[in-house]
């Protein structure tokens, strides 16, 4: 059993995350937040530790005079970040060449 677990097949959704260990992934979070970073650890709740993280926060502001919607994206980088799983919406691994 143990030897067969390290294979490249996707039998359950979390296998997709397992195959992304040590790869850069994209994470979409609640609150219009997105992360791009290298996946170093995760658990079944989708708690994660990411490295070399770029966070993008999308903010929509309303112009006081014209009432136009202004979309702003704030970016920052963080060397190592623990992300609590309950905020995760979607995880996308890099394109696999399999």
């Amino acid at each position: 059993m143990a030897a067969a677990e390290e294979d490249n097949t996707v039998k359950e959704p979390l296998d997709l995350i397992r195959l992304s260990l040590d790869e850069r992934i994209y994470v979409k979070l609640r609150g219009d937040r997105e992360l791009r970073g290298k996946l170093h650890a995760y658990d079944q709740h989708l708690n994660m530790v990411l490295g070399d993280v770029e966070e993008s926060v999308t903010l929509v502001e309303i112009d006081d005079e014209t009432y136009e919607e202004i979309v702003r994206v704030d970016k920052r980088t963080i060397p190592f970040l623990f992300v609590r799983g309950d905020g995760v919406i979607l995880v996308s691994p890099p394109l696999r060449t399999s």
């Binding site: 995350i17 989708l46 996308s92 691994p93």
Partner: peptide
């Protein structure tokens, strides 16, 4: 997305 994982909640 080529592959994607969606958290069930």
């Amino acid at each position: 997305y080529g592959d994607c994982f969606i958290r069930g909640n």
